[in-house]
Design a protein around this nucleic acid. Sequence first.
RNA 1: GCGCCCGUGGCUCAGCUGGAUAGAGCGCUGCCCUCCGGAGGCAGAGGUCAGAGGUUCGAAUCCUCUCGGGCGCGCCA
Length: 586
Amino acid sequence: MKHELEQLVLESLNTLHNDGVLPEPFAGEVQITHTKNKDHGDFACNVAMQLAKPARRNPREIAQAIIDALPTHEALVKAEIAGPGFINFFIDPSAGRSVIARILVEGDQYGRSDIGQGKRVQVEFVSANPTGPLHVGHGRGAAYGATVADLLQAVGFEVHREYYVNDAGRQMDILGTSVWLRYLELAGEELAFPSNGYKGDYVWDIAATLHREHGDDYRHPVIEVFEGVPADEPEGGDKEAHIDALIDSAKRLLGDIRYRYIFDLGLNTILDNIRADLASFGIHYEEWYSERSLTEKGSVNKAIERLREAGHIYEKEGALWFRSSDFDDEKDRVVQRDNGQTTYFASDIAYHMEKLERGFDLVIDVWGADHHGYVPRVRSALRALGDDDSKLEVLLVQFANLYREGEKVQMSTRSGSFVTLRELRKEVGTDAARFFYVMRKCEQHLDFDLDLAKSQSADNPVYYIQYAHARIHSVMRQLSEKGHSYDQPLGESNLDLLNEAHEEDLINFLGRYPDVLEGAALHREPHQLVHFLRDLANAFHTYYNAHQFIVEDDKLRNARLNLCLATRQVLANGLGLLGVSAPEEM
RNA sequence: GCGCCCGUGGCUCAGCUGGAUAGAGCGCUGCCCUCCGGAGGCAGAGGUCAGAGGUUCGAAUCCUCUCGGGCGCGCCA
């Protein structure tokens, strides 16, 4: 309906322009909004006020002209001027009720649209380094990214979900070396574990697997391992130099093939764990994109070459620099270190270059807000490559803090005292976790109340919405117990009996759902859907308390049941997009 | 120091991207089942939208500054 009104107004404006009433053709976008106040009709339009200035006319005068030139439409009963120059539209209630029949026909397709026109969108999210299990910080990006992707798909985009696997680089070398050192301990060697190594229990687990399956095959005397290695931080040394030297020892003593075996064992074990976690969270990817593969097929060098040819690379102190300060960045960045290794940034340039080469119309990155400083340099690189950086959209997700019994749960990666995503899921369940993560807009810090998420009460918005859904199932069960059967066609031909205020309210909500999906998808704001579902559930609970559905009158009863089932369908559709289940009983 | 994000009832947040009288939930006060699930509903109190300027028909929303909070500013990833 909203879009139809847009068209009507647009046609009216064209007529006015052709008749010379308006000096210029209308260039902007006609904004039609749902009214908050019943007195203002069902929809309102502010275009007359926007035109007042350029047309040098009184906005109410323009509004009247627009109304006069408005084509007729069967569902539009009245259009009137209000306030400073709003045009209020009143919709025929019976046209509104027809949405019930439509929902019952369209089922789980109701609300979906094709405004994305099949444009190809890539959404990259989570992409946590496979150096350890996912923790609750990753959870928000996971829930948010997945929901944005699903929303975009629902409104007609072709969505490609991708996880960028950092399976190369120093952090992974540290992991591999950590596994090996733990293995040496299991094999009976005594050593001081590096302060910069990965100390989590999962490292012991991987080491145990290695030891169980290969015995002492990978064992080397500690004396040799630590030979020539500079002191660690606790001994007054440098922890970075210490761990780097240990990595070198590992590579030298084990040789390429055996080193790579341990490295991949760690990588694959953790990656499998991450995949399983995300799958349990209802999150699936079209592609897991390997950073290593970028290097292996020469993309990183190709990216640097392209930048060099375009004159944006220079050498200084043995390293290669990208002159990003010529673009949006505050200073230049190293792409190849003086030791010949390309940097993480170089991989990322290559990765983003490839994303655009793969022909996506839009590339969306979901990052933690702590990476915000990284955005300008990636954009700079794309522009330097001659690519269109407006195809890149970076969505920054703020931190989530956990609260238990009113106290903030302290977490730090350093002390290893972080809560894993798996623990959170076990504690509050997938539904509550997915829901709470997207309840707030992404640039807002999130206070995640564990006790609230667990509580099975009205305070808990997840239960509130799910309860509305379950309640409708319960009504349908009651129906047969009371000796009635449900007759959908009979209800459908009597929808005009639904003229109680509560019914009109509820119908109004149901009709708005497609617009909500569109808005949530186009603005990348899942929380809009969350708020809508809460309001929809509220409208239903209010209706439930005010009126009996299972009444003796066959026509009225079936009309009301149709409304209930349409409500149930929209609740299920919306919850489904959030990755939350819609239970039949609770 | 520079850059990005945030500041809305006691608490947690919306506010349809510049529109009409700023809305919810929790908490507080008072109510509602002989009735389909009370895991529900109704009503009430509670706000100088951090502060000060500016932009225009119109600002919680846009611009500038100030104050408060978070996060970034590596030849780490």
